[in-house]
Design a protein around this nucleic acid. Structure first.
Lengths: 229, 229
DNA sequence: GGAAACTGTTACGTTTGCGTAACAAATCCA
DNA sequence: TGGATTTGTTACGCAAACGTAACAGTTTCC
C-alpha cells in the first residue's frame, strides 16, 4: 500500500513546516502550497488523499478554496482556524470541510484528527509506527514506551522529546531542533529546560542513568538516540 | 467468495420490490427493512456488504440511521434521495454515505452505481458489531454491555462514551474527540464533564475503579481503552 | 404527580508536570 | 594550567491536570 498524500495549504511558513514535519514523521507524503491558487492547481493535479487548509490566505481565502475544491473533488478537508472564531468553524463545515483544528494546536491532537478523518473517509490510514531501538520501543498509537518489556510512564513533554529523538534514531539532533519540535518554535533558542528533561528521560529509560547508552550527548551539537551495541 | 449481501431500507414497498428485483437479478443476496430500527438491527446482525438507504423514513430518519451505522460499521452506503433536494445529498455524504441516487431512477444507472461503490470499497474486513476488549464486550446492535458475562446497565451518555473508546480500542483518544463524539461538536472544547463520566464508567465496568485496567488515563492527552496483555 | 434516573456544574484536594535557579562536574580552548 | 563554556544534577515553587463528591435541574417512567 502506498503512502497517503496530504496537501497542506498555509501562508505562514512556520505552520507549513510544522505540519509537514508532523505528517512526514507519521509516514505521510506531503506537498504544500502557500496560497489558494497553487492549492487548487495542486489539488487538481496531484489528487491528494487529504487537504489541510488554512482559512486566512492571501488572495482567494480558504472558504473560496473549499467551495471550488468541492466542485470537482470530495477529498477530505481539515481546516485550520484561529482560536475562538466560532463562526469560522461553522461556515467551514457548511462549505464541505470535514473537521477543523484551531491554531495553535498540539501535534498530538492534530495527528489524531488527521487519522480520524482518514478513517472516516475509508482512506486506509497508515499504521502508526512502533519505533524500536535496542530494547527500547515506542508505540505511537498507545503512546506507550517500554524498555526491555517493562513499561515506563513518561510525561507528555518527556514523550515528545523521546519521540523526536526516536524519529531520528542513529543521527544527531541539534538542540535547537529538539527544542523546536518538542516545545514549539518559540523555544528554539535560549531554553535551559532541555537538559533537565534529558536528565529525566535518562532516569526513566537508561539502565544506568549516569552512563547513558541510549541518549548520548554530542557536545556542542545536540543529542542522539543510539542503538546500543 | 459467496454472494455479496445487500441491505435495502425503504418504507415504500414499491421501491423495496424494485430494488430487490434488480439486485437479485444481478446475483446479489438481499435483505430488506422498512424502517430505521429494523435497518440498524439487521445491519448489526447480518453484516451486509452494502446498504441502500432511503432518507425519508418513518421514525428515525436516514440521516440518523447513517450516523448510528457509522458508529460500528464502515459498510458502504448508497442513499436514496428525492429529486432536486441538493442539500440532502451533501448532508448525507457528510454523515458517511458513499454515494447517492435520486428517485426515480433508471435500473441500469442504479446498478452501475452499486457496482461502482462495491468496487471502490474493497473492504479488508468488516468491523464486527460486537467489540470485545478483554472480559468487556459491547454489543452495538442491542446497546448491551457485559463485563465477564455480567450485564451492566449504562446511561445513554455513558454508553456513547464507552463506544467511542471501544471503536478506538488500543489507541489513545484525545479529550476533544471524545467530547465531540459523545456530546456533539459544541462540546469540543472546555468541557469539564468528561472526567465525571469517565469516573462513572469506571465505577461500572472496572473491577477496582481506583486502579482502572480498561480505561486508562493518558495525562495531558486523553484516555485509552486498553486491550489487556 | 411523584420517584427514580440522568445530566451538567461546581468545588476542592491531590497529584503531576513544568520551568527556573543554583550549583557541581566535565569539557574546551588559549 | 586556568578560566570560560558547556553539560549534568538537584531542589523548589507555581500551574495545570486529574479524581472525586456533592448538588441541582431535567428528563423519564410508573
Amino acid at each position: 500500500m502506498s503512502k497517503a498524500l496530504v496537501l497542506v495549504v498555509d501562508d505562514e511558513p512556520r505552520y507549513l513546516k510544522l505540519v509537514r514535519y508532523n505528517l512526514e514523521t507519521a509516514g505521510y507524503e506531503v506537498v504544500t502550497a502557500p496560497n489558494g491558487e497553487e492549492a487548487l492547481s495542486l489539488a487538481a493535479g496531484q489528487n491528494p488523499d487529504l487537504i489541510i487548509l488554512d482559512i486566512r490566505l492571501p488572495g482567494i481565502d480558504g472558504y473560496e478554496v473549499c467551495t471550488r475544491l468541492r466542485e470537482f473533488s470530495s477529498v477530505p478537508i481539515i481546516m485550520l482556524t484561529a482560536k475562538g472564531e466560532e463562526q469560522e468553524k461553522v461556515q467551514g463545515l457548511r462549505l464541505g470541510a470535514d473537521d477543523y483544528v484551531t491554531k495553535p494546536f498540539a501535534a498530538d491532537e492534530f495527528m489524531a484528527r488527521v487519522e480520524a478523518v482518514l478513517r472516516r473517509s475509508h482512506i486506509p490510514e497508515l499504521n502508526p509506527p512502533i519505533h524500536t531501538v535496542g530494547a527500547l520501543s515506542i508505540d505511537c498509537a498507545q503512546r506507550k514506551v517500554t524498555v526491555g518489556g517493562r513499561e515506563v510512564s513518561l510525561s507528555p513533554t518527556e514523550y515528545r522529546l523521546l519521540q523526536c529523538l526516536a524519529v531520528n534514531a542513529g543521527r544527531v539532533v541539534v538542540q535547537e531542533e529538539l527544542q523546536e519540535k518538542a516545545w514549539g518554535p518559540e523555544y528554539r533558542e535560549h531554553y535551559e529546560g532541555l537538559r533537565v528533561f534529558i536528565r529525566r528521560l535518562r532516569q526513566k529509560i537508561e539502565k544506568d542513568p549516569e552512563h547513558p547508552t541510549y541518549i548520548i550527548t554530542k557536545p556542542g551539537i545536540g543529542y542522539m538516540l543510539a542503538t546500543p551495541a
